[in-house]
Amino acid sequence: MDISGEQHIPASRGAVWQALNDPAVLEASIPGCEGLEKLSDTDFDARIVSRIGSIKARFQGQVSLSDVRPEEGYVIHGRGQGGVAGAVKGSATVQLADDGAGTLLRYTARAEVAGKLAGVGSRVIQGVASKTANDFFDNFTRYVSAEEGGRMPESAAVAGWRRTPVVAGSVAAVLVGAAIAAALLI
């Protein structure tokens, strides 16, 4: 299942790129994210609790980056295990372009669910995935805009995390997946 979208962000490309690589911003933007932990320059662990309606699923995810082109974009890959609920994985291509005074962020994500999640949740997955992606970018845009205006999300102060290429548009990938997961219903 492919999800794509774009978002105008009232911030410079440099600022957006920085935020896309700021674990704190990402953690604050990813719906249900309870922590991002850097393992290496391109690998991260993510903990996500996804709540959709009565459904609540916890995911342990790994996120990695490839094709990193500063201020232009990257491809982010992610996978997460939700125990007996199954697993999610995905990848997303994120591209940045100047857009007037701001930045246009385009993303194309592909998310897959596995196991029980796939078996009982596929009917509504697209709706959940799209909504999750939208929520991420709404949050992200809000934070980046706020940061431009001088206000940092509180979590950005989280101790000692270097601003490195991290996750990012992560949105997409795993994270979307994770939330999706959440979605199930029978």
């Binding site: 669910v113 596995a114 796939a118 078996g119 596929s122 029978i186």
Partner: peptide, 11 residues
């Protein structure tokens, strides 16, 4: 990917 996507009697 080999996932059965309608594995319930609802689907």
């Amino acid at each position: 990917e080999g996932q059965l996507t309608n594995a319930s009697l609802a689907d």
